[in-house]
Amino acid sequence: MAAQDDIRTAGTDNMSTDTFIKGLWKENPVFVQVLGMCPVLAVSNTAENALAMGLATTFVLVMSNMLVSSLRNFIPKQVRIASYILIIATFVTIIDYAIQAISVELHKSLGAFISLIVVNCLILSRAEAFASKNGVIASLLDALGMGFGFVIGLFSLGAVREILGNGTFFGMGLFPNGFQSWIVMILPAGGFFTLALWLLLFNIWKEKRKPA
């Protein structure tokens, strides 16, 4: 598998830019790896929610990747998953408090999905597949790349859903009065439709780029 090869070669020589870039595009967590679908579908109903969720996930991803990486020689193999979950849960709790302290409104609209970052398989998979085998700097870059890739994915969905479903972008009206909003887009079903659309576009684009 291409992904696994990259993981092993990354972090060795001058691969650090690639470590960062691959998460954004080639191994984008949403469009290529299709990981962490629960928040992607559930909290992408507006651009703002999507961005906040993406950044919260990125924070947890960066912090846990760095801590896992720096503790990688200390954690025995048998208890590594338990240790990772403990570390991830800690940072999720921290970001949960932080968001509450920033805005009660925002915390209400993100709701249970903040706590559910714990079970976002993207974070555990980066801890297991990358951070536990690479240095702190490489892990930081990997987490940043994957995190921003996740933000891009969430934001692509959130923007489409908010513009069509509400006629606004970051709460600003885009259309003249009387715009007919596509209510399905802000409902859960709209998340599935929009994700399917983006995956379709992504795959068409990949097919086109493939040398014949």
């Binding site: 503790l71 200390f74 025995p76 338990a82 240790s83 570390i87 849960a89 800690t90 408090y97 932080a98």
Partner: peptide
């Protein structure tokens, strides 16, 4: 014993972090 030390160590560290933020 090494496992125990690792888990307790990480647990303590995490608890400390959470308490601070709380």
């Amino acid at each position: 014993s090494k496992m125990l030390v690792a888990m307790v160590g990480i647990g303590t560290l995490c608890a400390l972090l959470i308490a601070l933020v709380y």
